[in-house]
Design a binder for these strands. Structure first.
Length: 182
DNA sequence: CGGGTTTGACCTGCGC
DNA sequence: GCGCAGGTCAAACCCG
């Protein structure tokens, strides 16, 4: 299933992924569009409907890759690719206009990789939640057409609350954020 | 010294 | 089977 901003004005986002940095007023990151993909449908979705200003072509680029949704995969000889062993995780991507790549969403992230992707002028960065037992990942990349547009994709759901240091601030941001800003 | 970042190597799946 | 592209690992490095 795929949802647009218009379909879930103000109710879907906090339900799905609390802590998503829609409301970070500090750096001016306001979502200009987002797409929600739940675990069951994202595989091979090429005709995804987009929310906000995300163009359907962009969405297809992000989620059309068949490599995104694999079933269980046997681990490699050296125990790598552990993440792929897990079944589908809920995914959520959105687009913001910001000068910074890593938005303050109340969680702590550790960068574990960066990769230059084809047809993109900007490298894609890979982050993992630093909280133990939390396997949420996110990847951040900029649009080649507009270097100020940041595509952030979350994978999985946090098993904990936002970091205590940032929780209050995150809550304040959430309180002051409205989807009508889209 | 501990935690985060960088970066090259490695692994896997897919298309041809 | 091979090459390509995406995703991850982990050692080295950086910084407070």
């Amino acid at each position: 299933m795929l949802s647009s901003a218009a379909d879930h004005h103000g109710s879907l986002y906090p339900l799905l992924l609390p802590g998503i940095p829609f409301c970070n007023s500090g750096a001016g990151e306001k979502p200009t569009g987002f797409v929600v993909l739940d675990a069951g449908e994202a595989a091979g979705t090429s005709a995804a409907k987009a929310g906000g200003e995300i163009a359907s072509t962009t969405t297809a680029t992000l989620h059309g890759s068949s490599s995104w949704w694999k079933g269980p995969v046997v681990a490699g000889e050296k125990g790598r690719m552990k993440a792929r062993r897990k079944m589908r995780e809920p995914r959520f991507c959105f687009q913001t206009r910001s000068d910074v790549d890593l938005l303050d969403d109340g969680y702590k992230w550790r960068k574990y990789g960066q990769k230059v992707v084809k047809n993109s002028l900007h490298p894609r960065s890979y982050y993992r939640c630093t909280h133990s037992n939390c396997r949420v990942k996110k990847r951040v990349e900029r649009l080649s057409e507009d270097c100020r547009m940041v595509i952030t994709t979350y994978e999985g759901r946090h098993t904990h609350s936002p970091c205590s240091d940032d929780a209050d601030a995150a809550g304040d941001r959430t309180g002051s954020c409205a989807f009508t800003s889209l």
